[in-house]
Design a protein around this nucleic acid. Sequence first.
DNA 1: ATACTTGCAAATGATTTGCCAGTGT
DNA 2: ACACTGGCAAATCATTTGCAAGTAT
Lengths: 154, 154
Amino acid sequence: MTVSPDRPAVAVDDLHAAEEAVREQGLRLTSARRLVLQALFAARGPVSAEEIASGLNGRLTASDLTSVYRNLETLEGVGIVRHFHAGHGPGRYVLEGDREREYLACEVCGRVEAVPPETLDPARKAIASATGYAVRFAHFPIVGRCDDCAVHSG
Amino acid sequence: MTVSPDRPAVAVDDLHAAEEAVREQGLRLTSARRLVLQALFAARGPVSAEEIASGLNGRLTASDLTSVYRNLETLEGVGIVRHFHAGHGPGRYVLEGDREREYLACEVCGRVEAVPPETLDPARKAIASATGYAVRFAHFPIVGRCDDCAVHSG
DNA sequence: ATACTTGCAAATGATTTGCCAGTGT
DNA sequence: ACACTGGCAAATCATTTGCAAGTAT
């Protein structure tokens, strides 16, 4: 598939719930796995695999980048993690518990902001009636110009 | 910038017009450059740098991949070419003359379809009033489930 | 003539794969 | 015990960069 297929999202509210979800899949709860989860909870927002592996730049225990990638993939399989691409550069990973957040990226200033899903429901509705597509602005952000940048240019 | 900045688009209708546009920028019209333009016109849709370099799989003269990348970048600077990402995998390049087309990608079956901009104007309007963003669905497609796939699954 | 370009090799960045040793259950 | 994992090296994919040789203007 070209884009990440839809998986049933599993919203977990804390580290403990996440560990439960992992166990429920018959997966082992290893330290590397736990570290990835900890980082995701500590980050409070989208982070790259690299950032997780570095322990969020030293704030947490560092771990092996390969394992981080493998665990992120596993956790996406479980449904508690998701990733998206905000432009060129590494993918950004988030907990599904940051539920349904969708992203807006400004093509001028580069800012990426998250909005709750309700914000985009009208747009979703408009797209559905125009094209038949049930949209999720999850894997890619919506790209445009933010207020500020629209004002300061053509 | 995280995403490709907005450039004034220059819609060219044929190879000749494209070559004029290149000349007008004081750029040289080399055979490698011309080959890239030819491929873009022959393709009638999004193509990867690799596909262009292969001469659209043998239908045209092949050329060096590095030069293709360099020329695509140059042509994006001129404003007659643009690229977007339909998912993981290589970027896809299109002529701006395929003016303002925007893309819808189905996350289930992987289909990517182009729609004319008017189709998405209502959605654009909805996003603008909800967020203040002036949206262009140009650098990334809109990801969702197409009609067919929505029917055959949850 | 000479600056812009090409083409090839090598580098880079992101991510994946192979493989064998390590460890949860 | 034994299959699931971790860690490290090496491979892969997309794209970029360095540089000497080529060529539009």
